[in-house]
Structures are given as C-alpha cells and as structure tokens.
C-alpha cells in the first residue's frame, strides 16, 4: 500500500463482535501531505463497518479543520487500508477474537 504519511490504528482492542470500530489516526510524515496540519496530535473516531465509508469520514475531518481538502484522498485511503486489514483479520479468525 502506498504510504500516505498517515497512520491509522485501532484505538481499542478489536473483539470482533461489534461493527463499530474505534480508530486513531495521526500524521506520521507531514512531508507527504499537501496541507498544513499538526503532526503531534492523534484523532480518535468511531467507524461503523456497515454504514460508514472512509471518504465520508475523511470529508468530516476536512470540514472539522483537521486536514486540508487536498489531503482528503490520502486520509480516506489511510482509513480504507486499515479497515481492509481489520476486515480480513476478522474473516480469518473463527467466531470471537
């Protein structure tokens, strides 16, 4: 996966039972982003695997002032990559984590 300069991780342990995830995103390499942002702050948010989309969350972050609009795609991609990994992990593990 292309390095966006952003890091997204689970903010809480995934118990695999909930469709809602707690994720945390922060800037790892500010040089890879086009806009100005704070690289010492992490943003924690919930992401519902069934109803939310990475683009929607990225848009909300841009509108909330965390990122510049030009970085919206990078933010969405970072979230999507992490969510994809989490979904694949859940598929591999039998019921219950």
């Amino acid at each position: 996966a292309e390095d966006t300069g952003l890091r997204v991780e689970l903010a809480e342990e995934d118990d695999c039972s909930n469709s809602s995830l707690a994720l945390r995103l922060w800037v790892e390499d500010p040089k890879k982003l086009k806009g100005k942002n704070k690289d010492n702050e992490a943003i924690e948010f919930s992401f519902n695997l069934e109803t939310d989309t990475p683009e929607e969350v990225a848009y909300e972050m841009v509108k909330s002032g965390f990122f510049h609009e030009s970085d919206s795609k990078a933010v969405a991609k970072s979230i999507r990559d992490r969510v994809t990994v989490i979904k694949k992990t859940r598929e591999k593990i039998p019921a219950g984590c």
């Binding site: 010492n40 702050e41 924690e44 919930s46 509108k63």
Partner: peptide, 27 residues
C-alpha cells in the same frame, strides 16, 4: 495529556489527543 473533543455537524465525534512519544519513535 489533554483531550479535545470536536463534534462534526453530522454527529461524529473526534477526540484529539497528543500522539504518545513512543508511537512517534516507532514510526
């Protein structure tokens, strides 16, 4: 560490906190 809460108009809550030093070093 200080926490700041930002609520988007769509209702999603963003909680801002400092990135722990250890995570910055890892990356």
């Amino acid at each position: 560490s200080s926490l700041t809460q930002v609520v988007h108009s769509a209702g999603r809550r963003f909680i801002v906190s400092p990135v722990p030093e250890s995570r910055l070093q890892e990356s």
